[in-house]
Design a protein around this nucleic acid. Sequence first.
RNA 1: GCCGACGUAGCACAGUGGUAGUGCAGCUGAUUCGUAAUCAGCAGGUCAGGGGUUCGAAUCCCCUCGUCGGCUCCA
Length: 594
Amino acid sequence: MTELETLRHSCAHVLANAILVLWPEAQFAAGPPTANGFYYDVDLSHRITPEDFKRLEKEMQKIIQAAQPFEREIISRQRALEMGRSGALAGLGPRPMPSVFKLDIIERIPANEEITLYRNGSFTDLCAGPHVADTSKIGAFQLTHVASAYYKGDEKNPQLQRIYGTAFATQEELEAYFNMLEEAKKRDHRKLGKELELFTFDEDVGPGLPMWLPKGTVLIEELEKLAKETEFQAGYQRVKTPHIAREQLYKTSGHLPYYAESMFPPMELQEESGGEKNIYYLKAMNCPHHHKLFGAVPRSYRDLPLRFAEYGTCYRYEQSGELMGLMRVRAMQMNDAHIYCTEEQFAHEFRAVNEMYLKYFKIFGIDRYQMRFSTHDPAKLGQKFVDHPQLWKKTEDMVRDVLVSSGINFVEVPNEAAFYGPKIDVQVWSAIGREFTLATNQVDFAVPRRFGLVYTTSENKKETPLCIHRAPLGTHERFIGFLIEHYAGAFPVWLAPEQVRVMPISDKVGNYAQRIVSELMASGVRASADLSSEKIGAKIRQAQLEKIPYMVVVGGREEAAGQLSLRSRQHGDEGVLLKNDFYQRLNDEIQKRS
RNA sequence: GCCGACGUAGCACAGUGGUAGUGCAGCUGAUUCGUAAUCAGCAGGUCAGGGGUUCGAAUCCCCUCGUCGGCUCCA
C-alpha cells in the first residue's frame, strides 16, 4: 500500500467510526482505498444521503483533531471469532448483533495468516493495515457520494450502502483534485458530443441507441477509411453480412442459450410457405456469419490465412443501468475481422495483429494502455472453457511467446479467457481517467469446429482452421467516445469534422472567401465560409469554440495578393501565406494523419 | 436488472402551492468591421409522460419513461 493509500484507508476507518457514532447498529463489510479515494460498505436501515455528509464529516473531523493513535494488535483466530460474535468488530464495543460480515471475512482468512486488529479511540476494526500513526495525519478529506454495492460484488448477497470519500495529505491537494474533476467534466464525451453536435440520443429511438449527426459521421467515416486502408495493406478482404440471423446460427455457434440474455429478444415470424415458425435474432457478434462465409466455399491450405473484415453492426441488450453515453451502448459498429489460419501460421498472424494495434496507437498518440492476456483455468475445463487442455496450452503459449518476443508490456489474468480460447484485451485510460476495454484480440480454436469448418491440407486431408477474432479499433461508439475525451474534442486535422473555416473581414471579400472554400473542397478538404455579418473577432471565437483546426482570415489585402491569413486552433495567428502553400501544407498534414 | 439522486426553451440555469423567468444559441433588421462575443427587435416551454391531492400544482403524492452515480458485465 502506498502512503496515500494508507492515509485513505485510515480515513475509511474514521468514516466507519463516525457512522457508528450516529448509527450504533451499523454493520460494516470492507473499506479499502481506491484509485481516487476510499469507500466503506455499510449495512444500515437508515438511507445515508448527501445531507448526512455534513454531520458525518463533523464527527470525522472531531476524531481527526483528537489525533487518536492507530494501535495494531495480533489476536488469535479464536479471539477474533469471539469479538465478531459480540459485535465488537468494526464497532465501538460489544453490541447486541454480531459483526456478520467481519465474521465471514475471518472465515476466509487462510489458517497460516495472522489476524490483526486496529484500534483508534474506542473504534476497533478487523484489518490487515497498515495505517497512519494517528488520525491527525489525515490532512484533508471529503465525502463525495453514496452508491450501492452487493456484498462481495455478488447480486445474490445483501445490498450495502457504499459511502465514497477522498482524502489527501494537504488541503491544497484535495482542492487540486476537485479542480481536476471539474476539468474532467469539461472533456466528458457526453458533454462535448452535444456541444460539438457529434451524436444524439432520443427517447423514442431508445436508450443506448446513439444516432450520429453529420459531424460525428465524419469521424466514423475517417476511422473506416483508416481501417480499410490498413486492412487492405495487411491482406484482409472485406465482407458484408446481414444484421439478423435465424436461431439455428446461434445454436451452432454455442451462443444460445448461454449468451441469450445479452441479446435482444428474438423475433418470431410465421413464414408463408409451410407455416413453420421461424425465429430470428439481431446479431450480437459477427463471427457466426463470417464462419458461414468461410464454409460457403471449399477452402484449401493455399487460401490460408484468410482474413475477413467487416465494420459489422451488432446489437446487445445491455442492462439498463449499464448504459453510459457512447461507452456502453446497445447498437455498435465493430472494427471486426476474423483470420482463419493453420497452427503454423498462427504466431505470425497474431504478431501482425498486435503490430496493427501498435500502429493505431501511434497514430492516435495513445501511450497509456495495457494489454491484458486472459487465460483459462484448468479446473473449469468443460464448464466455463471448452475441454481441450492441449489446445489451451498450445495457444496460450503461442500468444505469450508473441507478446514476450514483441516486447509488449502485458499482465496475465487467469480464468478470464473466452470460452473458445485465450484473448488479449486492450485497456486504455481516457484523458479524464476512465478505464476502458477498447479493443480485443481473441483466439478461437473451438467454434470453427462447431461449424464444421475445414480446409484441405497439402496431404489432401481435412483440417479445422484456428480463428483469430480481432477488433483493434473496438467499436465506433466506444472508440470515438474515447477519442473525444482523449483530444478534448480538438481532433487532429485529418479527423476534424470541419477542417478549415474561411472568414472574410467584410462582405467585400465574401466571394474570395467562397472561392477558397471551393478550392479546398475540390481537393476533398472539409471547409466552409462564415459569411455572417459578425466582426472578425466573433467569427474567430465561434470557430475556436467549434474547435476547428484551421481558420483562414481574408480581407482586401489577401485578395489582392492571392494570399490568406492563417490562424491555427493551437497557435493562433500564423501570419500570411500564399493560398497554394497553405493547400499543400494542409493536404500533406491530412494525408500523413499527423 | 438492483440501490440512490435527478428531469423547467436547442444549451446552461433561476423559480418550492397563486397566470413560467434570465443568459447564450436561433430568427429579422441595422452595422461592413483585421485575429476569442457590434447593436436593436422578435420568436421559442402541455415545466419528461400519465394519474392523484387541492379552489388552484413546475412545486405535494403515486406510477411509467429517460439521464446520472455505483454494483455486476463487457467493445
